[in-house]
Computed example of a mutant assay.
Amino acid sequence: MPLFQNASFLTTVANLRDLPADAVYEVAFAGRSNAGKSSAINTLAGRVRLAYVSKTPGRTQHLNYFTLAPGKYFVDLPGYGFAKAPEDIRRQWEGLIGPYLSKHSPLAGLVVIMDCRRPFTDLDRNLIAWFRPSGRPIHILLSKADKLSRQEQTKVLRGVESEIAGWGEGQYSVQLFSSLKKTGVEEAESVLARWLDIPLTTKAKAADTGKKMPPDQGSPGAKQP
């Protein structure tokens, strides 16, 4: 069973003053529109429609909070790269996301979702370059890995590993992920559980310690912090 199977929607936040007051640890999910961010959250929670999956870029306009345990949350951030979004909505996103990512103390780390066929767009790099000075960890999910062959997956993974190796000291990690095939779930759980101080399941513990998993339960590889 998924580690975060008890996740439930809590609230939508449009203003920083409305952030949950009881927050102890939060993990934020960011990604270019249509990179598979909502699908990744749904997959990690073992749910179909916990996070709204839209075909319209920029549909998520606020911070959506999902409760995992008392004081512990997933936070779904607005997608970026939404060229058709009205300017007033753009300003709202910028005014909300920037202060949240830079000043919100319960934020334990940032998960960046990238389509494995198009990793590290300029928007991805801009977000990461802006967030890294916070000193908080970053975990990259290379989504839609099922769209590539095994050889192509390995090539993309190695390329991203090489890029983040050049970032210097810090807690940076990357893995392949597929919401369709449900691959990479245990690897992601092992990272996020540490950030959130949530006990790992047996499968996630195996992934975290590098034990060999059955062929249908792991991704081709992952670099962990």
Rank of each mutant, 00 (worst) to 15 (best):
Q61A: 06
G98A: 10
P137Q: 14
D76Y: 08
I113P: 02
G135D: 15
R117N: 04
L192K: 02
T60I: 09
I164D: 02
L77Y: 09
Y100W: 11
L157K: 06
F74Q: 11
D115P: 00
A193V: 10
I140Q: 05
P106Q: 14
F120K: 08
I89L: 15
P86Q: 11
L157V: 01
G184Q: 05
I164A: 07
P137S: 14
R150D: 08
V53M: 08
V48L: 00
G98K: 11
E94C: 00
Q153D: 09
G159L: 01
G135I: 10
Q171H: 08
I138P: 01
E87S: 09
L192F: 00
L192I: 09
K181G: 02
W93A: 08
K155V: 14
L107S: 03
E87L: 05
L157W: 02
I128A: 12
P99T: 06
Y100T: 08
E161V: 12
Q151Y: 03
W93H: 09
Y52W: 06
L77T: 02
R132C: 12
A108E: 04
P70Y: 04
A145G: 07
D76F: 03
E186F: 15
V174Y: 03
G79W: 07
G166H: 13
A108H: 06
V111K: 10
E163C: 01
A85K: 02
E169G: 15
G168E: 10
K55N: 14
V75T: 05
P133S: 14
Q175D: 12
R125V: 08
F120W: 15
